[in-house]
Amino acid sequence: MTTQTFPVEALAGLLLTPPGFTASQALTGLLFLGFVAITLAGAVVATGARMLVRSVAGLALCFLGVAGLYYYLASPFVALMQILIYIGAVCVTIIFAVMLAETAGQEREVKRKPVMTFLGVAGSAAMTAALAWVALGTKWSGAPAAPEAGSLEKVGQSLLTTYSMSFELISVVLLVAIVGSLVLARAGRDK
């Protein structure tokens, strides 16, 4: 009796595997394109939506796509932290602020003058094009990463040895931010 395995290769062969790729490579590439599409769509919604709540939802979508990109850059820990901190904490906090500070009549963004919008589009597009031009035109050279050296163990070790000072300073910054936001948000409460 033979064990039956799921025929991935045969199934992908039916679905027109591109020449020169194995089925898993093709699937990996498609998934990467999917994450890129999610990131770009999230960014478009985050900047273009007229209601702030939708904008925050687009931001969460964009962060999800970026987390997928981190996974492709061989750091699943940072990808998980991205989802946990950005989507789980930052986006939820922004949504709370939107609910606290916005009334129903104010939700719609006031329209800018078309000239101003055009100037914003032109300026940011020029900046993006310049950055992309530099990125594509430069001949990057460097040591290729060792396959296992970026592991979670190494990250933890260097956090507590080489970067221990910055680690402690970050905790102080977070503490100051917590206390400061409590003080700021409490100030006008008696009114």
Binding site: A74, V78, G150, V155, I170, V173, I178, G180, S181, L184
Partner: peptide
Amino acid sequence: HFLAPDPTVGQIITLFIMAIAAAEAAIALS
């Protein structure tokens, strides 16, 4: 991932950016 000889540096910097962004969001929202 592609260029650094020590591939933990970028991950740590990204984690620090996350912490700074969280602190910044908290302060800005208050």
